[in-house]
């Protein structure tokens, strides 16, 4: 009897510190004027209803994932899936540095981010999903027309990146209850690699035109939204195995209609 009680206590103590499921907010989606129109001109993007994590994935969460998925450990990962800086900021393969637990997980490659999302029955958001959710502020689903809002975001990006990363969750929630879409870390999306690929089906014909449209692909409406242009420029420059100190991620799920 005492043995059983001791066993129960030991088992409880062995449970990971956070067993709570990550919080996802529902976003109804809809028609959306994207900076990257699907037809390369002006067609709105159609964003199906989806759910998005309210916060970026933290180092603590990624550690729990690495513990149970040894092929994604820093000392176990295949070189095709991440560069030499993968999780470089941790003090050990399964060891966080002081204060890192609640900071957004960075130094993660696209492959690792995708694998983490799969481990919680989720996926990376698409560019359109991210852009849609990021257009919102605390009171408006689409704050992009407000120059003061755009300025604020640019101010955040002007902050030097040598400062320690804040914890997740300190930003103001937008109308969907989602935080930290701006100014904390850049974030992976599932289709980062194709942002500058033409969406126009007439470009299929000429093989020499398969390279990218560049500025022609960006909608004239939003050329003033420098923050989103910076995001596109960064994501387009990446390869799937790349990791950086300012690039993290969060996960998305399809929306299951109840």
């Amino acid at each position: 009897m005492r043995g059983a009680a001791l066993f129960l206590v030991a088992w409880t103590l062995a449970l990971p510190a956070s067993t709570g499921a990550a919080e996802y907010a529902r976003i109804a989606g809809g028609s959306f004027a994207s900076v990257l129109p699907p037809d390369g001109k002006s067609a709105p993007a159609q964003v199906a209803p989806f759910r998005l994590r309210t916060l970026p994935v933290t180092n603590g969460e990624f550690l729990a994932f690495a513990r149970t998925h040894p092929q994604w450990r820093r000392d176990g990962i295949a070189s095709i899936f991440a560069d030499g800086q993968y999780l470089a900021h941790w003090t050990g393969a399964l060891q966080l540095g002081d204060g890192q637990r609640q900071q957004p997980a960075t130094h993660v490659s696209w492959f690792a981010a995708a694998a983490f999302c799969e481990s919680e029955q989720a996926r990376l958001p698409s560019w359109y999903e991210f852009e849609f959710a990021a257009a919102a502020d605390a009171t408006r689903a689409d704050a992009r027309g407000d120059p003061a809002w755009r300025e604020r975001i640019l101010d955040w990006y002007a902050r030097p990146s040598t400062a320690a990363l804040p914890d997740v969750g300190n930003g103001t929630a937008n109308v969907y209850g989602i935080r930290d879409m701006h100014g904390l870390v850049w974030e992976w999306v599932s289709d980062y690699a194709s942002l500058m690929v033409s969406g126009d089906n007439r470009d299929q014909g000429d093989p020499d035109l398969l390279k990218f449209c560049g500025a022609g692909a960006l909608s004239t409406q939003d050329r003033e939204n420098y923050a989103v242009l910076m995001r596109i420029a960064l994501l387009s420059s990446l390869k799937a195995a790349d990791t950086t100190a300012n690039l993290g991620f969060r996960c998305a799920k399809d929306d299951i209609q109840d």
Binding site: P38, F111, S194, V197
Partner: peptide, 27 residues
């Protein structure tokens, strides 16, 4: 679809679905 994206990533192939059900892609 998820494996398509991952395989394209390891091979360095870029692709995007077009509005008519086709794909623009590097060769």
């Amino acid at each position: 679809a998820a494996s398509v994206r991952k395989l394209a990533a390891v091979l360095g192939v870029q692709y995007r679905a077009t509005t008519d059900g086709g794909f623009n892609h590097s060769s």
